[in-house]
Simulated scan of single mutants.
Amino acid sequence: MVREEKLNNAIKAVHDLIIKTRALAYENYPALALAKLLDEMEYLPALILEEKDQTEFFESYLEHICKQYNFPEILLRYQS
């Protein structure tokens, strides 16, 4: 799980990643690269649903994705 006070931001971050990924698809981003991004993204909802607190891991994994794919605005929005 992600702590209650961060849950809405976590869900919004996943939503923002979906929107960015769709935009990349429309920009003819390579299919293999999109698949790799989706592979990484799919773990985030699982962390939100875990029984034990996964907030710190969610945050570090989100940061990893945002840095790797140059989505700093998503990380900043999550952190605000």
Score class of each variant (00 low, 15 high):
residue 15 H to F: 15
residue 1 M to V: 05
residue 79 Q to P: 08
residue 59 E to A: 01
residue 17 L to N: 09
residue 46 A to Y: 04
residue 52 K to T: 11
residue 55 T to E: 01
residue 17 L to F: 12
residue 78 Y to H: 03
residue 61 Y to P: 00
residue 77 R to I: 01
residue 51 E to V: 08
residue 17 L to S: 13
residue 9 N to Y: 03
residue 55 T to Y: 04
residue 27 E to Y: 15
residue 34 L to P: 11
residue 1 M to K: 08
residue 24 L to R: 10
residue 40 E to R: 09
residue 32 L to N: 00
residue 51 E to T: 09
residue 78 Y to S: 00
residue 35 A to C: 11
residue 45 P to M: 03
residue 67 K to I: 09
residue 73 E to K: 10
residue 19 I to H: 14
residue 19 I to L: 14
residue 62 L to K: 07
residue 5 E to T: 03
residue 74 I to K: 01
residue 62 L to G: 07
residue 22 R to Q: 12
residue 60 S to G: 02
residue 31 A to I: 14
residue 40 E to T: 04
residue 63 E to N: 04
residue 10 A to H: 04
residue 2 V to W: 08
residue 37 L to P: 02
residue 33 A to P: 05
residue 20 K to Y: 09
residue 59 E to P: 00
residue 31 A to H: 10
residue 17 L to D: 07
residue 79 Q to C: 08
residue 8 N to Q: 13
residue 69 Y to V: 06
residue 8 N to D: 13
residue 13 A to I: 02
residue 4 E to I: 10
residue 10 A to I: 09
residue 19 I to G: 12
residue 26 Y to E: 09
residue 43 Y to E: 15
residue 12 K to Q: 04
residue 67 K to D: 07
residue 40 E to Y: 06
residue 17 L to M: 15
residue 38 L to N: 07
residue 62 L to F: 10
residue 9 N to I: 03
residue 74 I to W: 01
residue 8 N to W: 12
residue 71 F to W: 03
residue 58 F to N: 08
residue 53 D to F: 04
residue 21 T to F: 07
residue 23 A to V: 15
residue 21 T to K: 13
residue 24 L to V: 11
residue 59 E to I: 01
residue 12 K to E: 14
residue 42 E to D: 15
residue 10 A to K: 08
residue 19 I to Q: 11
residue 21 T to H: 12
residue 59 E to G: 01
residue 64 H to R: 07
residue 74 I to R: 02
residue 28 N to E: 00
residue 20 K to E: 14
residue 38 L to A: 11
residue 36 K to M: 15
residue 23 A to H: 14
residue 34 L to S: 09
residue 26 Y to F: 13
residue 33 A to D: 07
residue 72 P to F: 10
residue 75 L to W: 13
residue 52 K to Q: 12
residue 41 M to I: 15
residue 35 A to M: 11
residue 68 Q to K: 00
residue 2 V to D: 07
residue 63 E to H: 03
residue 23 A to P: 09
residue 1 M to D: 07
residue 45 P to S: 06
residue 43 Y to D: 15
residue 76 L to N: 10
residue 15 H to I: 13
residue 20 K to T: 04
residue 11 I to C: 08
residue 39 D to C: 03
residue 5 E to C: 09
residue 20 K to P: 03
residue 16 D to F: 11
residue 35 A to F: 11
residue 77 R to D: 02
residue 23 A to T: 13
residue 74 I to G: 01
residue 80 S to F: 02
residue 20 K to H: 09
residue 7 L to F: 09
residue 55 T to K: 06
residue 78 Y to I: 00
residue 41 M to A: 12
residue 30 P to Q: 03
residue 33 A to R: 05
residue 28 N to W: 00
residue 24 L to C: 07
residue 49 L to I: 15
residue 51 E to W: 04
residue 66 C to S: 00
residue 56 E to L: 10
residue 64 H to Y: 07
residue 26 Y to D: 14
residue 28 N to D: 00
residue 53 D to E: 05
residue 3 R to T: 06
residue 29 Y to P: 07
residue 33 A to K: 06
residue 21 T to M: 14
residue 79 Q to F: 08
residue 74 I to C: 03
residue 4 E to Q: 11
residue 6 K to Y: 06
residue 59 E to V: 04
residue 71 F to T: 02
residue 3 R to N: 09
residue 40 E to G: 08
residue 60 S to W: 02
residue 61 Y to Q: 02
residue 16 D to C: 08
residue 77 R to W: 00
residue 14 V to N: 04
residue 56 E to T: 03
residue 45 P to Y: 01
residue 11 I to Q: 11
